[in-house]
Simulated assay, not measured.
Amino acid sequence: MNAKAIRQLADVTLDKYRSSIPRKAFEQVIEEIVAGGSEGAGLKYEAALLCRGSFPATLEENGEPCIVEASVYRLNAVAAASFMLDGPEGLLLHLGLSETDTYITKHEIDDLVTVVRILRKEADT
């Protein structure tokens, strides 16, 4: 399939699913397909860590100490589209995290997410 046909198919798909696919992420996927040719070498799920911070806290349910860790990730086009269409499960799997005590917040910018984890035991000093 040539680049022109791929772009026409992409335009039709984007028009059909406009409300559920982030435009920038979708366009990046199409560019990767066109650049990678038929083998699609650029289509990998990636999440780059931008920053991470942690702080001590207290659990409301029982008053026990815990550590809250917040990380901000920039998703590539494949990960952003997957997050919008399928939810956070793919990101959790990619990061090796479980759903227990993990919360993901989507930003207004299509490719940024914040992952907050509650570590139920206080870290050693």
Score class of each variant (00 low, 15 high):
Met1Ala: 15
Ala3Ser: 12
Lys4Ser: 06
Ile6His: 09
Leu9Ser: 15
Ala10Lys: 05
Thr13Asn: 09
Thr13Gly: 09
Thr13Ser: 11
Leu14Ser: 14
Asp15Thr: 13
Asp15Tyr: 11
Lys16His: 14
Ser19Phe: 08
Ser20Lys: 12
Ile21Pro: 02
Pro22Thr: 07
Arg23Val: 09
Arg23Gly: 01
Lys24Pro: 00
Ala25Ile: 01
Ala25Arg: 00
Gln28Arg: 08
Glu31Asn: 08
Glu31Trp: 00
Glu32Val: 00
Val34Thr: 04
Ala35His: 06
Gly37Lys: 01
Gly37Ile: 03
Ser38Arg: 12
Glu39Phe: 03
Glu39Ile: 04
Gly40Met: 09
Gly40Ile: 08
Ala41Arg: 15
Gly42Trp: 00
Lys44Glu: 15
Tyr45Lys: 14
Ala48Val: 15
Ala48Gly: 06
Leu50Cys: 11
Cys51Lys: 13
Cys51Leu: 12
Arg52Lys: 15
Arg52Ala: 15
Gly53Gln: 11
Gly53Ala: 06
Phe55Tyr: 08
Phe55Gln: 04
Phe55Glu: 06
Ala57Ser: 07
Ala57Ile: 01
Ala57Val: 00
Leu59Pro: 04
Leu59Gly: 12
Glu61Gln: 09
Asn62His: 13
Asn62Glu: 12
Cys66His: 00
Cys66Leu: 03
Glu69Gly: 00
Ala70Ser: 09
Ala70Met: 08
Ala70Gln: 06
Asn76Val: 00
Asn76Phe: 00
Asn76Trp: 01
Ala77Pro: 09
Ala81Arg: 02
Ser82Glu: 15
Ser82Trp: 05
Phe83Pro: 04
Gly87Ala: 08
Gly87Thr: 08
Pro88Met: 04
Glu89Arg: 04
Leu91Met: 13
Leu91Glu: 04
Leu92Ala: 07
His94Arg: 06
Ser98Val: 11
Ser98Cys: 10
Thr100Pro: 03
Asp101Asn: 11
Asp101Tyr: 07
Tyr103Glu: 12
Ile104Tyr: 05
Lys106Ala: 08
Lys106Thr: 13
Lys106Pro: 05
His107Glu: 10
Glu108Phe: 05
Ile109Ala: 14
Ile109Gly: 08
Asp110Lys: 03
Leu112Glu: 05
Val113Asn: 03
Thr114Tyr: 00
Val116Arg: 12
Val116Ile: 14
Arg117Cys: 07
Ile118Gly: 02
Ile118Met: 11
Leu119Thr: 10
Leu119Trp: 06
Leu119Arg: 15
Arg120Asp: 06
Lys121Asp: 06
Lys121Tyr: 07
Glu122Met: 03
Ala123Pro: 02
Asp124Trp: 12
Asp124Met: 09
Asp124Gly: 13
Thr125Gly: 03
